[in-house]
Simulated assay, not measured.
Amino acid sequence: MEIVIRSTPDEVASTVADIVERSVRAGPTTLGLATGSSPLGSYRELIRRHHDDGLDFSSARVFLLDEYVGLPKSHEQSYFSVIRSEFVDRVDLDPDRLHGLDGRAHDLAAEAARYDAAIAAAGGIDVQLLGIGSDGHIGFNEPGSSLTSRTRIKTLTEQTRLDNASFFGSVDDVPHHVLTQGLGTIGEARHLVLVAVGAGKADAIAAAVEGPLTAFCPASVLQLHRHATVVVDEAAAGRLALADYYRYALRHKPTWQQF
């Protein structure tokens, strides 16, 4: 696991965009995209590079991390709609190459199995972007999730529902259930990129990076991954005991070694 500490959220966004751009320019790529506040700056930077630098997403394929149960894809707060408005519709990515879970599927277990099979049939995910919740969740794998879990239905904690209430107007309107890629599914991506900014994520980042490997902090599963990059600003790095070492290692990173 590599920990990259940047001075500002804009520098975090640029670093993450560099990773995605490298994958896109290398040829047809499959991206795993997350919603939420953490990756927004990276999406804005990628949109800028598309318009200003000609970054071409036309051959890319996208799979989403999760979806609310009960919301149609057309709902403004469905993650399918959110990722379209925040990113896909603002670059040249073919909407037919955007894949999400159907939160209104009649058989949710079958929908989850279909989704895992679709990711496998696409050759797996090359770069998976991840945010992190204040309780250490990634995707919607809440504390207590199996570290080898597959895509499935999960019940949101009340804290997660409260965290998302601002998007809906009221916590009463936030669904109680989601379909989410499991930690085992996420771990099959070739490169995991976890993004966090702000002091509110500092405890979760410290637990994920330097705490024990435990289902109590689902993001700690990144410690097992062969290629995981954690990109944070100074505020989100505020509780890291080895922050000075991470900065030192980054300064002395070999020029040939990529993130």
Score class of each variant (00 low, 15 high):
Gly70Arg: 12
Ile83Asp: 03
Leu64Arg: 05
Gly36Thr: 14
Ile83Thr: 08
Ser23Met: 02
Arg49Tyr: 14
Leu31Ile: 04
Ala60Tyr: 00
Val20Met: 05
Asp66Thr: 11
Glu76Gln: 14
Gly70Phe: 13
Glu11Met: 06
Pro39Asp: 05
Ser58Trp: 11
Pro9Asp: 06
His50Leu: 03
Asp96Trp: 09
Ala34Gln: 04
Tyr43Val: 11
Ala13Glu: 11
Leu93His: 03
Pro28Ala: 11
Leu65Cys: 12
Glu45Ile: 12
Asp56Lys: 00
Arg22Gly: 01
Asp18Ala: 11
Arg6Glu: 13
Thr29Glu: 03
Ser38Lys: 06
Gly32Tyr: 12
His50Val: 06
Arg6Lys: 15
Ala34Tyr: 04
Arg90Glu: 12
Val24Cys: 10
Ala60Met: 07
Leu64Cys: 03
Asp66Leu: 08
Gly32Ser: 13
His50Glu: 01
Thr29Leu: 00
Thr29Lys: 00
Ser37Met: 09
Arg61Ala: 06
Arg48Cys: 04
Thr29Met: 02
Asp52Ser: 14
Asp10Leu: 12
Arg84Ile: 04
Arg44Ala: 14
Ser58Arg: 07
Asp92Arg: 13
Pro28His: 09
Val20Trp: 07
Phe63Gly: 00
Ser81Met: 06
Ser37Pro: 03
Pro28Ser: 10
Val20Tyr: 05
Arg48Leu: 04
Asp96Gln: 11
Arg61Tyr: 01
Ile83Val: 14
Val12Gln: 02
Val88Pro: 01
Ile47Asn: 06
Asp10Thr: 14
His50Asp: 01
Lys73Ile: 01
Ala34Val: 10
Ser42Ala: 15
Leu71Gln: 11
Thr30Gln: 08
Ser14Glu: 12
Leu93Gly: 01
Gly54Met: 09
Glu45Thr: 15
Asp18Lys: 07
Ile5Ala: 08
Val62Lys: 00
Thr30Asn: 12
Val4Ser: 04
Ile3His: 07
Ala13Asp: 09
Glu21Gln: 15
Ile5Trp: 09
Ala60Thr: 15
Pro95Glu: 08
Phe63Leu: 07
Val69Tyr: 07
Leu46Gln: 13
Gln77Gly: 02
Arg48Met: 05
Ala60Gly: 03
Tyr79Gln: 05
Phe63Tyr: 15
Tyr43Glu: 08
Val4Ala: 05
Gln77Ala: 05
Tyr68Cys: 04
Thr30Met: 08
Asp52Trp: 14
His50Arg: 09
Val88Ala: 08
Glu21Met: 05
Leu65Ile: 15
Val82Leu: 14
Pro39Asn: 08
Val88Asp: 03
Asp92Trp: 13
Lys73Arg: 09
Asp89Tyr: 05
Phe80Leu: 09
Val62Cys: 00
Gly27Arg: 06
Phe87Gln: 01
Val16Cys: 07
Ser81Ile: 08
Tyr43His: 09
Arg61Glu: 08
Asp89Leu: 01
Glu86Ser: 15
Pro28Leu: 06
Phe87Arg: 03
Ala60Trp: 00
Leu55Pro: 01
Thr8Leu: 12
Thr29Gln: 02
Asp66His: 11
Gly27Leu: 02
Arg6Cys: 11
Thr29Ile: 07
Ile3Ala: 06
Thr35Ile: 05
Gly54Arg: 05
Phe57Trp: 05
His75Ala: 10
Asp66Val: 10
Ile5Asn: 08
Pro39Glu: 06
Thr15Ile: 12
Arg49Ile: 13
Arg6Tyr: 04
Arg84Tyr: 07
Asp53Ile: 04
Ser58Ala: 14
Val12Leu: 02
Ala17Met: 11
Ser85Cys: 02
Glu67Lys: 06
His75Leu: 06
Arg25Val: 02
